[in-house]
């Protein structure tokens, strides 16, 4: 009996040490797979909106993702929530990855839609889903407007307004 309780004690002591060690190891292993600081801070992309041509899709790369910048022509329906308005011009600024499984949709100027070849999803010119499996509109990247320059990666006033209204 005496023996048994001593063995039970060292058993519990071992379980305690092993448990702490296991949790600590798992934390370290989890963190090893986190994005590296250099990846997290990698780059802010700046685009000069004044050089953007209306009706033609501009694709810029931001943190490895394509960002669509589309200056609206007059025949594109206005979206008061999602459009970025600069003076008299309206822009669509969205991450160009289908919200279904991340393929890159292409811009189809004839019917003013973004179409995804992978699973047939379609979005209107403001990035709102219109057909197929996409569960939500195209995501809007954080941006800040400095004069006519758009800085992707910083959260500016217009972004916060659009993000708050779009939810």
């Amino acid at each position: 009996m005496h023996d048994k309780s001593r063995r039970a004690f060292i058993g519990k002591a071992f379980a305690g040490v092993a448990g702490v060690g296991a949790v600590a190891s798992l934390v370290a292993m989890k963190k090893t797979w986190d994005p590296l600081p250099s990846a997290v801070s990698a780059g802010f992309t700046t685009v000069d909106l004044s050089s953007v041509e209306a009706g033609k899709l501009n694709v810029v790369k931001w943190r490895g993702k394509p960002v669509f910048i589309l200056k609206h022509t007059d025949d594109i329906e206005k979206n008061e929530i999602r459009d970025l308005v600069v003076g008299s011009d309206r822009y669509t600024v969205v991450i160009g990855l289908c919200t279904h499984l991340g393929c890159i949709p292409s811009w189809n100027p004839s019917d003013k839609q973004f179409k995804c070849a992978c699973h047939g999803g379609a979005f209107d010119a403001s990035g709102v889903e219109k057909f197929g499996p996409p569960p939500r509109p195209l995501d809007i990247p954080p941006f800040d407007l400095k004069g006519s320059e758009l800085v992707l990666g910083e959260e500016g006033e217009q972004y916060k307004k659009i993000a708050a209204a779009a939810v």
Partner: peptide, 9 residues
């Protein structure tokens, strides 16, 4: 976390 970045890299 799985990708170790915001995109496949």
């Amino acid at each position: 976390w799985i990708r170790g970045n915001f995109f496949v890299s």
